[in-house]
C-alpha cells in the first residue's frame, strides 16, 4: 500500500496497530476541531448576520461586499502581473550582466543583487511609497507597490535564470561558439531560451510569492485584499468571516499555481526522458523559500 521507505508494507499486527493509532489520532484531531467549532459557535461566530453578507446572495450587503472583493481581486492581479513582467525583464538583465560581467565590475552586480535580496519586501514597498515622492516622483499607489515588489523579485528571478543557465550542458555554449556566434548571441539565442524552459516551474512558484506579497499593499493603502477586508470589517464587524474568505481566495489561487508548477515540471521531465538526457536540472536555492 505505502511506498515509503520508512516502514514496511504492514503485516496483520502492524495493520491493527496503525488502525488503532489512526483512530486515536483521528479522534484527537476531530475533538480539537469540534472544540474550536463549539467555542466559535458559542461566541456567535456562525450567525447569519456575520456570514450572510459574504455567502448569502439574498443578504442586502452581499452585492456590495463582493463588488469590493472583486475590485480587490483585480487590484491584486494587476499588481502581480505588472510585477511579474517587470521582474522578468529586469531579472533577465541582472542575470545576463552577472554572467557576462568582467571581474572589474562583477562585484558591483553581485553587491546590488545581495543587497536587494537582504531587504524585507515590506520595507522596499514602504521605501518606494515614502522616498520617491520626496524626490519629486508622484505616482499612483499601484506603482509604488509594483516598484517595491519588483526590487525584490527581479533579483530572485535573476538567480533562478542564472541557475537555469548553469544547469545546461557545456556542449550547448561550446556548439554555439564553434559555429562562430558571439557571446551575446550564444546567450540570447541558445542559453536563455533553454534556461527559461528548464526554470519554468521555479518561475511559476515565484509567481505564488508575488501574488502573496501584493497583500503588503495594505501598508501603503493600496486597495488589495487585506485593505479591502479591513474596510469591509469596519462596517460589518465580521473580521473572522471576512478573513476566512480572503484566505480561501488566496489558497485557491496559489494552490492552483502550485499545481500548475508541478504539472509543468512533470511535463518537462517527461520530455527530457524521451529526448537524449542532458545534465540534471540544478536544484536551486534562491533564498525565496520563506515566501513574502
Amino acid at each position: 500500500m505505502s511506498t515509503s521507505v520508512l516502514y514496511d508494507a504492514p503485516g496483520p499486527v502492524t495493520r491493527r496497530r496503525t488502525l488503532i493509532s489512526s483512530s486515536v489520532a483521528g479522534v484527537i484531531v476531530l475533538v480539537v476541531i469540534a472544540l474550536v467549532v463549539i467555542r466559535l459557535a458559542n461566541q456567535g461566530q456562525f450567525s447569519g448576520a456575520l456570514w450572510g453578507p459574504l455567502v448569502s446572495p439574498f443578504d442586502p450587503s452581499f452585492l456590495a461586499v463582493w463588488r469590493l472583493l472583486g475590485q480587490a481581486l483585480v487590484a491584486t492581479l494587476v499588481a502581480a502581473a505588472l510585477t511579474l513582467v517587470f521582474s522578468l525583464v529586469i531579472g533577465t538583465l541582472f542575470a545576463v550582466s552577472r554572467i557576462t560581467a568582467n571581474r572589474y565590475y562583477r562585484w558591483l552586480v553581485v553587491g546590488v543583487i545581495e543587497f536587494l535580496r537582504g531587504v524585507p519586501v515590506v520595507i522596499a514597498i514602504f521605501f518606494a511609497a515614502r522616498v520617491l515622492p520626496e524626490v519629486g516622483l508622484d505616482l499612483p499607489i499601484l506603482w509604488y507597490l509594483v516598484i517595491g515588489l519588483t526590487a525584490y523579485n527581479s533579483v530572485i528571478i535573476a538567480e533562478i535564470i542564472r541557475a537555469g543557465v548553469a544547469s545546461l550542458p557545456r556542449g550547448q555554449a561550446e556548439a554555439g561558439y564553434s559555429l562562430g556566434l558571439t557571446r551575446g548571441q550564444v546567450l540570447s539565442s541558445i542559453l536563455l531560451p533553454q534556461a527559461f524552459r528548464v526554470m519554468l516551474p521555479a518561475l511559476i512558484s515565484q509567481l505564488v510569492v508575488i501574488v502573496k506579497d501584493t497583500s503588503l499593499g495594505f501598508i501603503i493603502s493600496y486597495e488589495e485584499f487585506v485593505r479591502t477586508a479591513n474596510i469591509i470589517i469596519q462596517t460589518l464587524h465580521n473580521p473572522i468571516q471576512t478573513y476566512a474568505i480572503v484566505a480561501l481566495i488566496f489558497i485557491v489561487i496559489n494552490y492552483g499555481l502550485g499545481r500548475l508548477a508541478e504539472y509543468v515540471e512533470r511535463r518537462l521531465s517527461q520530455a527530457k526522458r524521451t529526448a537524449a538526457a542532458p545534465a540534471d536540472p540544478a536544484t536551486v536555492d534562491t533564498g525565496a523559500a520563506g515566501g513574502g
Binding site: 497583500s215 479591513n230 473580521p239 484566505a247 515566501g291
Partner: peptide, 28 residues
Amino acid sequence: SPVPPLRAVGSAWVTVFRNTPLAVVLFA
C-alpha cells in the same frame, strides 16, 4: 508518518499556511 490522520493534518497545515499571505495570517 504511517498514520493517515496525522499526514492529513501535516499536509493541510502546509497547504493553508504556504498559500496564505503572512498579513492575512496575522490578522486572522
